[in-house]
Design a protein around this nucleic acid. Structure first.
Length: 322
DNA sequence: CGATTTTGACCCGCGC
DNA sequence: GCGCGGGTCAAAATCG
């Protein structure tokens, strides 16, 4: 667990033993520009409504198609390193740790992915552990023998675990603007990492979406964000509209509509990309048909990235159910 | 003054 | 049974 397979080895964030869910990830190589994100004031506000629920998109089984289409499986060159979607279906590829190898740091073509999620056995309730438990107890009324009894109940509920969606982005700011309002409710040191992991909860009433943010110790410039659940509300008004003048990839816009509605796709994703658009560096996200000027030659630092992606996206990564 | 962050304590599952 | 690691709570502190 301590050596890194060739490229980028990441292990804890998604690892969560308890996340017994499957995880799917896709990555893009990056060219950098973390500076773009440096300024929180870079105004991600405005990226609003048209893109949001990536989560949702990934939620469904066919969603991956959307993503694939959206990204066009083209060569990598974005800020978004990788996205890992964790769902009920375990997508164990390698044993259990989530390994995402990509990005400029990726050197090994096949270090790519390995998703993780441990056995589907006892995972589920993990994240919603205590609170749910407590709630349950309350709901159950008694709560006496609760703990153990709950266990069995948990099993049942386990089935409806909230979808998780994790991705890595290059950013110097830990908590990226994603359009939603979050309240930090905890922070823990991450084993084997000097960087702590922060826990956030959507502040909107009734919204149970949570997210974890931590910095990769392998690559401090990378932030791993894991979303859990789906927003049951619209994105806060402030972000509405795409007024920031940020251009989004057509593909993005295309894929968003259906997703947007109700949930919240980690806008960081978009946010991350947006700046690149302005710099003409998003070629990778554009479908081949895009009229953007391809910058592959300058964007790609590692020819392998391309191949890597090809490897990852198509079938390996996007595990979709029939 | 309300909202948010900080931070230590607590709970829980898991492996040994 | 115990220790560890992860996740959450909640009181206190801080912020706007």
């Amino acid at each position: 667990m301590s050596d890194e397979p060739g490229g980028f080895y990441y292990h804890d964030p998604f690892h969560d033993d308890r996340y017994a869910t499957g995880a799917t990830a896709f990555s893009f190589s990056t060219s950098t520009n973390s500076s773009l994100y440096n300024s929180p004031s870079h105004d991600l506000h405005g990226l609003g409504s048209s893109h949001m629920s990536f989560t949702e998109s990934l939620h469904g089984s066919t969603d991956y198609n959307t993503i694939e289409t959206a990204f066009g499986l083209s060569p990598p060159s974005s800020q978004l390193f990788s996205v890992v979607k964790e769902e009920q279906k375990p997508l164990v590829m390698d044993g259990g740790d989530t390994v995402v190898g990509v990005g400029e740091t990726a050197v090994t073509p096949n270090s790519s992915i390995s998703s993780s999620s441990t056995e589907a056995g006892g995972d589920e309730d993990t994240s919603k552990s205590k609170k749910d438990r407590l709630q349950k107890e309350v709901e159950d009324g008694g709560g006496e023998s609760s703990k153990k009894v709950n266990k069995s109940k948990k099993k049942v509920e386990k089935i409806k675990r909230e979808p998780r969606f994790a991705f890595m982005t290059k950013s110097e700011v830990d908590h990226l603007e994603d359009g939603y309002r979050w309240r930090k409710y905890g922070q823990k040191a991450v084993k084997n990492s000097p960087f702590p992991r922060s826990y956030y909860r959507c502040t909107t009433q009734k919204c149970t979406v949570k997210k974890r943010v931590e910095r990769s110790f392998q690559d401090p410039s990378t932030v791993i964000t894991t979303y859990e659940g789906q927003h049951n509300h619209q994105i806060p008004a402030t972000l509405r509209g795409n007024a920031a003048g940020v251009m989004l990839p057509p593909s993005m816009l295309t894929m968003t509509p259906p997703l947007i509605a109700g949930t919240g796709f980690p806008q960081e994703f978009i946010v991350q990309m947006a700046p690149m658009y302005n710099h003409g560096g998003m070629s990778s996200f554009y479908p081949q048909s895009s009229n953007l000027t391809p910058l592959h030659h300058q964007q790609l630092q590692h020819p392998d990235d391309y191949g890597l992606l090809q490897d990852m996206f198509p079938s390996t990564f996007f595990k979709q159910e029939p």
